[in-house]
Each structure stands twice: as C-alpha cells, then as structure tokens.
Design a protein around this nucleic acid. Structure first.
Length: 455
RNA sequence: GUGGCUAUAGCUCAGUCGGUUAGAGCACCAGGUUGUGGUCCUGGGGGUCGGGGGUUCGAGUCCCCUUAGCCACCCCA
C-alpha cells in the first residue's frame, strides 16, 4: 500500500511543544492583562456566511478571504479577522449583552495571502474591544492595555505610536480632497519605509494629487519631533501642528481628541516617551474613524507593528440600525513570537511540569503512582516515566526535556522512607526523608522541591 | 497576485567536469556487566536526492513543468 506523504498546506503550520509552550504563555499573558481591565471572553464560529464577512475589511480582505460553498450549497467564508465577526455578534446579541460591552477574543483567523517570515495563512489574533461608547476614556484604556501587555510580556523597549484618522481626513479636506482617500493614507503609512520624498512621489503618482497638494498633506510630517527628553513632548507637537498646518473642522476635532488621549494616558502614569504621536500612521483597514495605534519593538523595527487597533464609529451599521461605536486593538501573536524568538527572549524549556520521577523499581508501580499523586495534591507538577527502563536512560530523558529536578526512589529508598532529590541544573543530589511520622510527604521534601521548581 | 533565490537523512549541510553500492555532524535507538543525567567509545535504524517529465550509454548533478520554503513588491497582525 502506498504511503500518504505527511504534509501541511502552504502557510499552515504545526506547532511542536518547543513552539507551542511559548505560544500558550503569550496567550495566557494577554488574557490576564485583558481580564485585569474587566474585558470578558467570547468566541465565535470560524466559518460565517460569506455575506457577513464580504466587503467589510476593504477590497484587499475580500481577495484574501477563504470562500467556498458548503455541503448545503451555502456561500460561506473563514473569518479573516476578529473585528468583523464581533460586529455581527454584537448586533445579534446586543440586548443580552448590554452596553457598553467589553470583550476579548483569542482565536485563529485565515488570509489567503503570500507567506513570509512571521506571516502565515492561518494565524492567531488576541483582540480586545469596547463597544457602545464614544468616551475618550476607552481610547485611553486601549493604550493602557497595550502598554501593560507589552510590559507583562517582558518587553521594556517598545513604542506605541498614536494618531487620529480625523486629523488625516481634516488635512485632506483642507485641500479639497474628499474622495480617493485610501491610496493617500497608504502612501502616508509608508513614511517609515520610503521617507518623505517617497511619500510625496507616491501621492502624486499613485493617488493622483498635485505636487502642491502632496506638499500640504505631508506637512505634518515636517513638524519638528519633540525632544525625547522633554516629557511633554507629544502635546507640544500638537500645538505646532495646529499652528502650521491647515485643517478642516474635522481635523481640529481630531486634534482635540488626540490631546485628550495623550493627557489621559499621562494621567494614568504611562511614561510619555513610550507613547509617541506619529502623523504618518494610517492603518490599512477602512473602518477606522478616530484614534489609531501601532506598536513596534524598539530593537526590531523591521518586523512592523505587533499590536495595532483604533476607533471605529459604527462598524455594525451593516447588521443593525442601532449605532454601535467601538474601539479596540489586536495583538499579532505569531508575529510577536517571531520577534521575541529573534531577540532570544523566549523560554527554552520543553517540560511543562518541573518534577520528574523515574519508574525505577518495576514492582512498585502503585507506590510511584501514589507518590506522584500526593505531590500533585501539594501543588507540584510531576511526570512519572511510563516504563521501567534503565535509570540512565530515564535521567537522560529528564535532562533533555529540561526538568528542574528528579526524585529517584529505588528499593533502598522505599525501604528507608527516603528519596534522592536531584537538582538537574546544578547536578547536585541529596537524600531526604520522603514521609514524616504521620505518613504525609515530609516538609523537607516539599520545601526543597518548591525551591528547585521556582514556585 | 508579481518578481528573484532555494529544495540531498528528523535537523544543519557536503557531494568535483554528468560516471560504481549517496556521505558527515547533530538528533533518535541499543550497548560499554546488576541502581544515577549534559563528556567519551562502539553499533544500529532512517534517503524512490521535494514530485513529474525530458536530454544522455549513464542524472543528486543539465533542461522544462509542478509543489513547498526564503527574500522583495503589494498588503497587513
């Protein structure tokens, strides 16, 4: 019989323990931070009616969306982000949820685009959003969550860049530009990559602006970057922007919102140097209307944004007549993992339990099982080797898996009521009492194990 | 979706001008006397040389197609 070649689809990946352990750690961390702000967990189906998803994230999303016909002849599609399904979800369950509604959602999404380092066709997003309020407090909170999240992951060198779509729109309106906004925003978004001249060139060539318009639209990029050392930096930039760039009333409203946002973030105690105003970030998704945010790792600017989001006035207007404003951001889990890996910041361990117990004395299986169960009752993670192989091989296994310690109990130890606790990292070994006078695990043993396993 | 580079053992790679039964290191398994782990020694399993077609007496090696990976563009997390 011919064997079937084991393989995975382009852009889809298996996760071996070495990769999945840090992945789960990252997800756990994100969840903990989201919950600390009161966000509630939800889940939605991977597959939706095509009409729910199509046309919601702009043309590009449509092209990348996995779409097909199911067995019942229905047009269906795999979700390409978590925000559009959220809009449907809120429109459908609004009255059960109550507003404002804060949710987080950790799940896979699918995009049929070309693969690259840190970019796949199936990847995980960790979103949080607040629906049903336009208060600037929610905008501030979004920045705070991202800030706390990055620190919880153990990253200190990161920059959250904020902007406001209204400012961009206001700039364009002041130049009499009302349509064809998207290509203009895209060009601005490339400022980091292609520089000021590159942006102007693209504005003229790709977006069809006159050179004068291109000059005016990019003028905010010329506003002198505030000195990083002065704490009031971004707000001074806003003042200069207001004085030097022509803005429509919408643009002025955007400036007011940005001031309120930065003021709130500062009041919450965030180091102002971590939050920078950047008038060039635009975000590709069409639905953003106010605050927008991107987060980059200072040591790895090249991988782009690892966490981004913004405010949308009314994402759910396609599904309900109620007006449902929202704001939220998304952590790009796989991209961030690729970045952390490159920085060597991922834990290397392959073990999930710290304590290893060799199955040494073949006749004592029940005693090993009872001993391990008692350790687990005491709150310790324990793996018992499943076969009574040579001790050498079992210890080698424990060593390679990265266990913190091993507890060797052979016939001598069983008879004496002791055990040998081995510190696998330091290559040290000590014989300690296994049980006390009452037959319970000895305090000495538990204390030693807790110290070795770092819990 | 467009363009460039690549594909040999589980992993990283050698393999000369096209020439005999395709190699190394690491990893894995088994030993180096009965109960002790990152070193060392010995042995073992594992490859239709990504897949298909072509040129040739002969293809891992040359040509075409295809699939996958990497890089850039596009876009984005």
């Amino acid at each position: 019989m011919p064997l079937i070649e084991p393989r995975t689809l382009k852009g889809f990946r298996d996760y071996l323990p070495e990769a999945q352990i840090p992945r789960e750690w990252l997800v756990d961390t994100a969840r903990r931070v989201y919950r600390s702000y009161g966000f509630l967990p939800i889940d939605t189906p991977a597959l939706e009616y095509e009409e729910i998803l199509a046309g919601k994230g702009g043309e590009e999303s449509d092209k990348q969306m996995y779409r097909f016909e199911d067995h019942g002849g229905r047009r269906v599609a795999l979700r390409f982000d978590l925000t559009v399904p959220l809009a449907r979800f809120v429109a459908q369950h609004q009255h059960e949820l109550g507003l404002p509604f804060k949710r987080y959602h950790v799940a896979s999404v699918w995009r049929g685009e070309n693969t690259q380092r840190g970019r796949y066709r199936e990847f995980m997003q960790c979103d949080f959003d607040t629906i049903g309020t336009e208060s600037i407090a929610s905008d501030v909170e979004m920045v705070l969550v991202v800030h706390d999240l990055m620190r919880a992951i153990g990253i200190e060198g990161f920059t959250i860049r904020v902007n406001n779509r209204k400012v961009l729109v206001g700039l364009l309106e002041a130049q009499g530009i009302e349509t064809g906004v998207t290509p203009i925003l895209r060009a601005l978004d490339k400022h980091d990559k292609i520089g000021l001249e590159g942006v102007r060139r693209e504005l003229v060539q790709a977006a069809g602006l006159t050179p004068d318009q291109a000059q005016a639209v990019t003028s905010p990029l010329l506003v002198e970057r505030a000195d990083e050392a002065t704490q009031r930096a971004p707000r001074a930039e806003l003042d200069r922007l207001e004085q030097s760039c022509p803005l429509s009333p919408t643009g002025l409203r955007g400036l007011t919102e940005l001031r309120a946002l930065l003021g709130g973030v500062e009041a919450a105690g965030v180091d102002p140097r971590r939050v920078r105003l950047d008038l060039s970030i635009a975000r590709g998704l069409d639905y953003y209307t106010g605050t927008i945010l991107e987060t980059s790792l200072d040591e790895l600017r090249g991988i782009g944004s690892v966490c981004s989001g913004g405010r949308y006035d009314d994402l759910a207007n396609l599904y309900t007549k109620e007006r449902l404003p929202g704001i939220g951001a998304s952590l790009g889990l796989d991209r961030l993992l690729a970045g952390l890996d490159e920085l060597g910041r991922l834990p290397r361990t392959r073990a999930t339990a710290p304590v290893f117990v060799p199955y040494f004395d073949e006749a004592r299986l029940h005693d090993y099982l009872a001993f391990c169960a008692a350790l687990r009752c005491a709150g310790l993670g324990v793996e018992l080797y499943p076969e009574p192989r040579k001790l050498k091989a079992q210890l080698q296994y424990a060593d390679r898996r990265g266990f913190a310690c091993a507890i060797v109990i052979g016939s001598d130890e069983w008879a004496a009521g002791t055990c040998q606790v081995k510190d696998l990292k330091q290559q040290e070994s000590a014989s300690v009492a296994r049980v006390d006078a009452t037959g319970a695990l000895s305090r000495e043993l538990l204390e030693r194990l807790r110290r070795l396993s770092g819990s």
